[in-house]
Design a protein around this nucleic acid. Structure first.
Lengths: 145, 145
DNA sequence: GCATATTCCTTAACATGTTAATTGTTGTCA
DNA sequence: TGACAACAATTAACATGTTAAGGAATATGC
């Protein structure tokens, strides 16, 4: 007869709580910029990889497609990115970060790096890297696993 | 000059993706019962610890209070739990699982256990436990850290 | 070529996440 | 006691998560 673990030792709940702990200082940082955590992810992916189509962006930013549709519309109105139809395949859409979007990243880069460094210090470099490896094993879309 | 990690090695994104991977089979299981992942958590906490007030429940199920308010209202209408005002402190509210709620847990217990076992097998018992320990370190509300 | 399936994206509907404001209740202290 | 702080819970408003359905463009097979 199998038994469930206690909720305190539940993997999904532990993941939520850890995420909550990690995001708290990041959300605090972003609250002053007027963008959300997801919009921050979109900006970072776009700056890191350059212009890309919506499908790739959704994949890299770990956003569901309906969410991305709304998010990009909001961000376009804010002037943080541009949306262009692909001329060869008019179903597709290319998305590109604007200078205003880059500015938001640049303005918060140092503080974000500091937050990351804080968590690395809490866990130690080795355990920090190991945590990332273990989390990757739980991701079905991770090619490495 | 500090630098942010690539989004692929970002801790928040890794946490999201891991959670997505873990929740996928659980959501699939729950889709047949008509309750959500959060409602499942509420039921499990209530069955594990017995009746409790809303604040304690929100804490244990890792739900924000406004979310819990809506969730308990929905679940009360479904007959999965009862809400009772505390007579000594009429601000408080006691929440208790109903037999119908217990039935949902019992009906899915075996399958849920199987899903947990699957992930333990994927990571190995030792790494699974270590992952939980590392995640606990990121939770600011965890007394052990 | 043409019907059909497939793909990319959007919209809809509902539930939850998140922050702030509000209501009702209890505690405190002058 | 009576104003005021503190607390529990709700409500509001907006953004996102999630599943399902729909629309426009392209690919495919005959």
């Amino acid at each position: 007869m199998s038994k469930l673990p206690t909720t305190a030792r539940s993997l999904p709940i532990s993941l939520i709580r850890a995420r909550e702990g990690v995001m708290a200082p990041i959300r605090e940082m972003l609250s002053e910029t007027g963008i959300t955590e997801q919009q921050w992810r979109v900006l970072r992916v776009l700056k890191e990889h350059g212009p890309m189509d919506s499908t790739t962006l959704a994949d890299r930013a770990s956003l569901l497609f309906p969410s991305l549709t709304r998010i990009t519309q909001t961000m376009r109105k804010k002037g943080l990115l541009t949306q262009t139809r692909d001329e060869h395949d008019r179903r597709r859409q290319m998305i590109e970060i604007t200078p205003a979007g880059v500015t938001i990243i640049d303005d918060n880069m140092d503080q974000a790096s500091q937050i990351v460094a804080q968590f690395k210090a809490t866990l130690g470099e080795a355990q920090y890297e190991q945590l990332l490896d273990l989390l990757a094993l739980l991701d079905p879309d991770n090619t490495a696993s």
